[in-house]
Amino acid sequence: MTDITQHHDERPMWPAVWNGWRCRCPNCGNGPLLRGYLTMRDSCPVCREDFQPARADDGPAYLTILIVGHVMAPLLLIVFTTFRPDPLILFTIFAVGCVSLSLYLLPRLKGVIVAIQWSRFMHGFSQAA
């Protein structure tokens, strides 16, 4: 049990999560985490932290849908009941809003999930790194 606590003290989670949100290396905060829009780098070009153990899978997509749905659904109801815009205008505004918010959140939430895995030594992120 002591080893687990020690691991958590060695890698503080909140700075790593902030670095992940910025799509930066959770270790140094300088190197880019992603090679493309959602493609992970094999390692950090600055500190050489190995990113190959990262397993974000469907987590970022699930969280993106959850957040976008919880933000846009009440907003849609408020706009519809308050302003009663034409249905095509309403659809256009909210379609663009949902797509834009999703595209903004997806890589950032992937960075956050990878950063949490890194800070908690999950999925092969070893203590030696």
Rank of each mutant, 00 (worst) to 15 (best):
G97Q: 05
D3I: 15
A115M: 11
Q52C: 14
P12L: 02
H7R: 04
N30M: 10
S43T: 04
Q127C: 06
A128T: 15
A54F: 01
D50M: 00
L33T: 00
T81H: 13
L101C: 02
L109E: 05
D58I: 08
V46N: 10
D42A: 15
L103N: 04
A56T: 06
V68E: 06
P15N: 06
A54I: 05
A61V: 14
N27I: 10
S100M: 12
L77M: 05
M72W: 03
R120Y: 01
T39S: 05
M72K: 00
F91G: 14
M40L: 12
L63P: 11
C44V: 07
V68I: 00
F121A: 14
R120K: 11
I4A: 13
P45T: 00
H123P: 07
D58Y: 05
P60G: 09
L106V: 15
M1T: 10
P74Q: 10
L105P: 07
P87W: 08
Q127G: 04
F94R: 11
R41Y: 09
A61H: 06
I93A: 11
Y62K: 06
M72S: 05
D9C: 12
M13L: 09
D86A: 15
F83G: 02
N19P: 15
N19V: 05
W18H: 06
G20V: 04
G69T: 07
Q6I: 10
D57I: 10
R120P: 00
I93V: 15
W21E: 01
L90Q: 07
I65H: 00
D3P: 15
I93S: 05
V46S: 15
S43R: 06
R55L: 01
V17Y: 10
V68R: 04
P87R: 00
T64H: 03
A61T: 13
H7L: 13
P87A: 11
S100V: 09
P45S: 02
A16K: 08
L75P: 13
S100H: 14
L33R: 04
G97Y: 09
L33H: 00
S102N: 06
R48E: 08
Y37S: 08
R41M: 10
M1P: 12
V99W: 05
V99S: 11
L101H: 00
V68H: 04
A115P: 08
A54Y: 05
M122Q: 13
L77K: 02
S126L: 03
C47V: 10
E49A: 14
M1W: 13
G69A: 01
N27P: 08
F91T: 14
L33Y: 00
Q117T: 03
G20C: 08
C44F: 01
P87V: 02
R24G: 11
V114N: 08
R48H: 11
C98F: 05
P45A: 00
S119F: 01
R11C: 07
L101T: 02
A73Q: 12
Q117Y: 00
A56M: 02
L109W: 00
T39H: 04
R108M: 03
Q127F: 09
I67M: 12
G124T: 03
S43E: 13
P32Q: 06
P45Q: 01
T81A: 09
D50W: 07
P15A: 08
L76S: 14
Q6P: 09
W18T: 08
Q117D: 05
R24K: 07
P32D: 14
